[in-house]
């Protein structure tokens, strides 16, 4: 018999999922140090662009199935002029910390900020 009323165990399940999200976010944040961070853009798994986050200013066109333009300015990175029909990458807010990324799934393009000062991109467990 399937219960149709929200119960204590359901609350526990929700809490567990939120705890997992928090743990993951903290893990990603712990590995984030801005000093020496670089912006890495991958297209179909291959590195298409790499620039230091700090000190870089400009717009960088990225070729691919759906070309887009990556903007780096003031220690922040965002996507402009995407030809992707979904437009999710353009809708995403600018990223500024290592571990953060902007992903264009249809175009298979990833814009990621990688950790500086030898810090890991992600700490697990």
């Amino acid at each position: 018999m399937i219960k149709t009323k929200f119960g204590l165990w359901d609350g526990a399940a929700c809490f567990l999922v939120l705890l997992l999200a928090l743990g993951l976010a903290l893990g990603l944040h712990a590995g984030a140090k801005n000093g020496g961070a670089v912006v890495a853009v991958s297209a179909d798994g291959a590195l298409a662009l790499q620039r230091p986050l700090e000190g870089t200013e400009g717009r960088f066109p990225i070729d691919g199935e759906y070309p887009l333009t990556v903007c780096i300015s003031g220690g922040r990175v965002w996507v402009e002029d995407s030809h992707c029909p979904g437009g999710d990458c353009q809708a995403q807010r600018p990223i500024s910390r290592p571990g953060q990324s902007i992903v264009c799934l249809p175009g298979r393009i990833t814009v990621a900020i990688r950790g500086g000062d030898g810090a890991a991109d992600l700490i697990v467990g």
Binding site: V17, L18, L20, A21, L22, L24, A25, L28, S42, D44, G45, G99, Q100, S101, V103, L105, R108, T110, A112, D121, L122
Partner: peptide, 15 residues
């Protein structure tokens, strides 16, 4: 598909 672990940064928000 993207051949990079970068997408995991979006998982906390999605969860």
């Amino acid at each position: 598909v993207m051949k990079t672990p970068a997408a995991i940064s979006y998982l906390p928000v999605l969860l």
